[in-house]
Design a binder for these strands. Structure first.
Lengths: 121, 121
DNA sequence: TGCCTATGTGAAAAATTCTTCAATTGATGG
DNA sequence: CCATCAATTGAAGAATTTTTCACATAGGCA
């Protein structure tokens, strides 16, 4: 095997790159939760949720345990919250940046303001 | 517009989910770098690198400035390092987990050890 | 101007990921 | 054993992303 580290990282981020999977991880930050509740909270087809849960399970970021007639999911480690926080910080910056850019564009009805960081050529 | 936050997050992570893009971000953590150097460091076709740089630029996580006849890229914000660190922490856990599991499987030639967290049904 | 190097772009083909549906497994109660 | 509820699986088609190639653009220099 021996996957280069940067590829493992890429796979890891790709595993996070889906709205439903993000929501699941966020919900699980408040503690373990049965599929039933995830399903109620997320607005996704049952079967689709299962598929996304399978992706999370395969990566090992969550674990699943059967309890009587339901299956309960939980985060496999505590560090996920850190990651989400770091991501939120950057994302906030990026979105703020976009907002600024948008305003510049709006103001730039007259006189032609240059690009801030976007396209290069 | 008004994209739900969890979708913005998913898009953000997806933007990170490519080996070349990861390497670029890692390289840029040591400071700005011209395309030429990225190209020398990464083992990717010139044109493919351009495409991946375009993805990063569009998201706003890097900026590009023309200097004489080369284009120099830089991280747009300082927080990227945090994110990478958080990701590395989790990833380390996950990979360690896989190694453990692998060992269990290897040992389990005799007597059938139960699943640790993997498949559920 | 015309050529050269460095980089970017558009578009088609190839590869991957998502969604959806039917069928399946597991546990529980009759 | 059968019916039922909860959840998962496999597979096909739809949608998205990656890769690649030919061509475009920018700057520097003869």
């Amino acid at each position: 095997m021996q996957v280069p580290l940067y590829q493992a990282k890429a796979e890891f981020f790709r595993m996070l790159g889906h709205p439903v999977r993000i929501r699941v991880l966020e919900l699980l930050q408040d503690g373990p939760m049965p599929v039933r509740d995830l399903l109620a909270a997320i607005d996704v087809e049952r079967s689709n949720l299962s598929q996304q849960l399978a992706v999370l399970r395969r990566s090992g970021i969550v674990s699943a345990v059967r309890e009587a007639d339901t299956v309960v999911y939980a985060l496999a480690g505590p560090d996920v919250a850190d990651l989400m926080r770091a991501a939120r910080r950057i994302l906030t910056e990026l979105l703020a940046g976009q907002r600024d850019l948008l305003e510049e564009l709006r103001e730039a009805d007259t006189a032609d303001g240059g690009a801030t960081s976007g396209r290069v050529a």
